[in-house]
Amino acid sequence: MMLTIIDLTLLFFLVVIAIAVVRIKDLFAATMLLGIYSLLSASIFVTLDAVDVAFTEASVGAGISTILALSTLSLTARIEKGHPGPTWIPILVCAVTGLTLIYATFDMPWFGDPDAPIHQHVAPHYLEASAEEIDIPNVVTSVLASYRGFDTFGETVVVFTALVAVLLLLGGRKGEDNESNQNKDEGGAS
């Protein structure tokens, strides 16, 4: 019961922060709120027994994302230029989509239900057999590195591709600057 109350309270905080992010014009403040949002969701993951996810979210989601967003802000603009009031078509689209999804939740298994379909498929095998088959006490690690190793390999490929893309986008910049500077220098000399 205690956990449920903590869970409900933390989720309520998340809602408040999300609304604040929508309304605030200062992008620096919005980025900071997003960091708090990530940290709060990490606490929610702890209450929902996902400790590995919690510390990944706290370090990668709250840490690295915030740093990336702040460095982007330092290269661009800090204040969002205002647009007049809420725009009705997006609100309508979001409301309709949201209501459809809420309608769909009535078919979902209830929170914490041990008989939910998700707990009947491969998960029992992981929990029962991984101690013998993989011999690592943390089941999440066994699944991540062994049973679903190809997934993790795919993830590594995605991260590598993203790194290459960022380097291509931002790495070439200095070269161009140098070239244009050189051109200017040459132009000035001639």
């Binding site: 929902l48 027994d49 996902a50 590995d52 996810v53 998700i118 707990h119 491969v122 998960a123 992981y126 929990l127 089941v139 999440v140 699944v143 991540l144 679903r148 997934d151």
Partner: peptide
């Protein structure tokens, strides 16, 4: 135990 698969 909670289900480890979504965590992964």
């Amino acid at each position: 135990y909670s289900n480890p698969l979504p965590h992964v």
